[in-house]
Computed example of a mutant assay.
Amino acid sequence: MNRIKIVFMGTPDFAVSSLEALLECGYDVVGVVTQPDRPKGRKRELAPTPVKAYALSRGLPVLQPEKLRAPEGVAAVTALSPDLIVTAAYGQILPKSVLDLPRLGCINVHGSLLPRYRGGAPIQRSIIDGEKKTGVTLMYMAEGLDTGDMISTVEVSIDDEDTAGTMFGKLSEAGAALLVEWLPRIVEGTAGRTPQNNDEATYAPNLTRDDERLDWHEPSRRLFDRIRGLNPMASGFTTLNGEVFKVWGAKAPTADDAKLGATAASLPPGTVIEAGAAGIRVRTGDGSLLLTEVQPAGKKALAASEFAKGARLTTETRLG
């Protein structure tokens, strides 16, 4: 059964667990397709994708077409003669010429409970939107954006302590387990296919700089979810004294955070209510939010309590 030839396509850490699971189960991965190396860090040096780094450590051939749909990209995959293509957060849409190539089809490990959160940032968007659960969908690929028939799903809870980083880890492991659980039936042709209800579809486009902007007129919970939904790939940001001021962490708001004294209640959103050992408390649209990790312009991230020691923050200090 495991002698079928699989081509794996993936790019970030999320995809590594699925590739590792295939190899550990003895499947024959004849090639790995990932995004080209990109500049990274302050020195802007080219860095391999996590999938490339792992694939090379396992001695697998790696392809990195700039555009998979280009003739040379299609030809390179065709030359591998795959029986099955498995993708996980590859980052490019597969053209029909590639979708039609393997006799067993193309399957995808997608980080949401489809048809909700189709697109490139389902994990971050689900947290930003305040969802209490998400999951992974194993699906057959089609020409549309995450529109293919579903094979199976698994639910994963989102806790207040979770960030995009921790959820990437949870969903990566859940997706890998779901993949190897269903692969035997996919190979045998006995896996079911459930069409998606397009009327229930929502979309999760890649994040933009505007998604990182913190609007202090929003409710505390909305701001908290945005901050943790960005972390650690990005941070929420506001301004302090005319300079960018990043927010990496905050404490989950409670009912007490909505109870403000007369003075605090009269302050406009974005005003610092207090700053001390607990962090920096900021007025929001419906109460307050305690910031726990911040990053002033040109400096490294640090605990908000440490920043507060020398920042001289008062109730006249306003963010944004």
Results as ranks from 00 to 15, higher is better:
R118L: 07
R118H: 08
G119M: 11
G120M: 15
A121T: 05
A121W: 12
Q124L: 02
R125C: 07
R125E: 09
R125V: 13
I127P: 04
D129F: 08
G130T: 03
G130L: 08
G130D: 09
E131Y: 06
K132W: 02
K133A: 14
G135E: 09
V136M: 04
V136Q: 03
V136I: 15
T137M: 01
L138D: 13
L138S: 11
Y140I: 06
E143W: 01
E143K: 13
E143T: 14
G144H: 05
L145H: 02
G148T: 09
D149M: 02
S152G: 06
S152Y: 01
T153I: 03
V154E: 03
V154I: 13
E155W: 04
E155N: 12
V156M: 11
V156N: 09
S157R: 10
I158M: 06
I158F: 05
D159K: 08
D159S: 12
D162Q: 08
D162C: 06
T163M: 01
A164N: 15
A164H: 12
A164F: 12
G165F: 10
T166V: 08
T166G: 06
T166L: 12
M167K: 04
M167F: 07
M167L: 15
M167G: 01
F168A: 01
G169R: 14
G169S: 08
G169M: 13
K170F: 02
L171K: 08
A174P: 02
A174M: 07
A174V: 08
L178W: 14
E181C: 04
E181D: 14
W182N: 15
W182D: 13
P184D: 13
V187G: 11
E188T: 09
G189T: 04
G189S: 03
T190D: 04
T190K: 03
A191F: 02
A191N: 06
G192M: 00
P195H: 10
Q196R: 06
N198A: 15
D199W: 03
D199Q: 12
E200L: 15
A201G: 10
T202G: 00
T202W: 00
Y203H: 12
A204W: 11
P205W: 12
P205A: 09
L207D: 11
L207H: 07
T208S: 14
T208E: 12
R209M: 11
D210H: 07
E212N: 05
E212T: 03
D215N: 15
W216K: 02
W216G: 06
H217W: 07
H217V: 14
H217P: 05
E218Y: 13
E218M: 13
P219A: 08
R222N: 13
L223S: 06
F224E: 13
D225I: 02
D225R: 15
